[in-house]
Amino acid sequence: MRLLLDEISVSIDGAALVHDLSLAVDTRQIVGLIGPNGSGKTTALRCVYRALRPTGGAVRIDGADLARMPLRDSARLIAALTQEGSADLDFTVEEIVALGRAPHLRGNQALNARERELCRRAMARMEVLHLAGRGVLSLSGGERQRVLVARALVQEPQVLILDEPTNHLDLHHQIRLLAMLRESGLSVLVTLHDLNLAASACDRLAVLSQGRLVASGTPREVLTETLLRDVFGVEATVVPHPLTGVPQVLYDLSSAEPMEGTPA
């Protein structure tokens, strides 16, 4: 299923946050959205999972305007892991994961045997099955993040939207999550701050700066020393990974300018 951000713009309280953004995620493709803090990445994602409506342009799924779709229908196609995806009520892990089936159910309809097995498999895949009976508020940040990924998988979407999904995860679970995305067969749009993980996991990268798309292409095309300097304001060296050849960014901390107010 193809996702298209078709010249979307977003303005809130008179401030333009995203400007004429055009970005495609083809079927079974992983596209990473990268850029500095405040560049508009999360705002763009919120338009896709319908927490925001673009003030200009449209989000399209296989050509259909998402805004014209019933919410239940779009929720069957698109699942999202957001930065605000915390749970305030102390549901158990298995109850949280089962909420992923909500777009497919009516009223208080109970899960059938297939859906219960789907939940079990998703929890096992994210290594939280042993936590099934635990209250979600008792979990660590990383455990909770994995529960929310399992909930998104149980939704059986065709498009997966992930906003900083590796937050709170240890190295083992970061790698497992990104490997799972590559194996999932879903169309994925993901924001990542770790550029080396983005280069390894994504087929294409799109770079936002001040709400505008400034670069798009394969990781090898996008991650250049010039772009890192111009967009992120860092001096870095880009080298090929010795096993995969994908670009890897090496940072020199001694080249960083001290923060304002910090003694030199």
Rank of each mutant, 00 (worst) to 15 (best):
residue 1 M to L: 14
residue 2 R to F: 00
residue 7 E to N: 15
residue 8 I to H: 01
residue 18 V to F: 05
residue 19 H to L: 06
residue 23 L to P: 00
residue 25 V to C: 15
residue 26 D to A: 14
residue 27 T to N: 10
residue 28 R to I: 00
residue 30 I to Q: 01
residue 30 I to Y: 00
residue 32 G to T: 01
residue 34 I to E: 08
residue 35 G to F: 05
residue 35 G to D: 08
residue 36 P to N: 10
residue 38 G to P: 03
residue 38 G to D: 09
residue 41 K to R: 09
residue 42 T to W: 03
residue 51 A to V: 14
residue 51 A to W: 08
residue 52 L to F: 11
residue 52 L to P: 01
residue 55 T to G: 08
residue 56 G to D: 12
residue 56 G to E: 09
residue 58 A to P: 00
residue 59 V to M: 13
residue 61 I to Y: 08
residue 67 A to P: 08
residue 68 R to C: 12
residue 69 M to C: 04
residue 69 M to P: 02
residue 70 P to S: 07
residue 71 L to Q: 12
residue 71 L to P: 07
residue 72 R to L: 05
residue 72 R to I: 10
residue 75 A to Y: 10
residue 78 I to V: 15
residue 78 I to D: 02
residue 83 Q to Y: 12
residue 84 E to N: 15
residue 86 S to C: 00
residue 88 D to E: 14
residue 91 F to W: 13
residue 92 T to Y: 11
residue 92 T to I: 04
residue 93 V to H: 08
residue 93 V to I: 08
residue 97 V to K: 01
residue 104 H to C: 09
residue 105 L to D: 01
residue 106 R to Y: 12
residue 107 G to D: 05
residue 109 Q to W: 01
residue 111 L to T: 13
residue 112 N to S: 06
residue 114 R to N: 13
residue 116 R to T: 11
residue 117 E to Q: 14
residue 119 C to S: 15
residue 120 R to Q: 09
residue 120 R to H: 08
residue 122 A to G: 04
residue 122 A to R: 00
residue 129 L to D: 15
residue 129 L to R: 13
residue 131 L to P: 02
residue 134 R to V: 05
residue 135 G to E: 05
residue 135 G to D: 07
residue 135 G to A: 12
residue 136 V to K: 01
residue 143 E to T: 02
residue 147 V to N: 02
residue 148 L to R: 07
residue 151 R to W: 06
residue 151 R to M: 13
residue 151 R to Y: 08
residue 153 L to Q: 02
residue 157 P to K: 03
residue 161 I to F: 11
residue 161 I to H: 13
residue 163 D to H: 04
residue 163 D to S: 03
residue 165 P to C: 04
residue 168 H to F: 11
residue 179 A to M: 06
residue 185 G to R: 05
residue 185 G to P: 07
residue 192 L to D: 08
residue 192 L to P: 10
residue 200 S to A: 15
residue 200 S to H: 12
residue 204 R to T: 13
residue 206 A to F: 10
residue 210 Q to R: 15
residue 213 L to C: 04
residue 215 A to S: 12
residue 224 T to S: 15
residue 227 L to P: 04
residue 227 L to T: 01
residue 229 R to T: 09
residue 229 R to L: 09
residue 231 V to C: 11
residue 231 V to I: 14
residue 231 V to F: 05
residue 231 V to H: 03
residue 234 V to N: 05
residue 234 V to A: 05
residue 244 T to Q: 01
residue 245 G to L: 10
residue 246 V to F: 14
residue 247 P to S: 12
residue 251 Y to A: 11
residue 253 L to P: 01
residue 253 L to V: 08
residue 256 A to K: 14
residue 256 A to M: 15
residue 257 E to S: 11
residue 259 M to S: 13
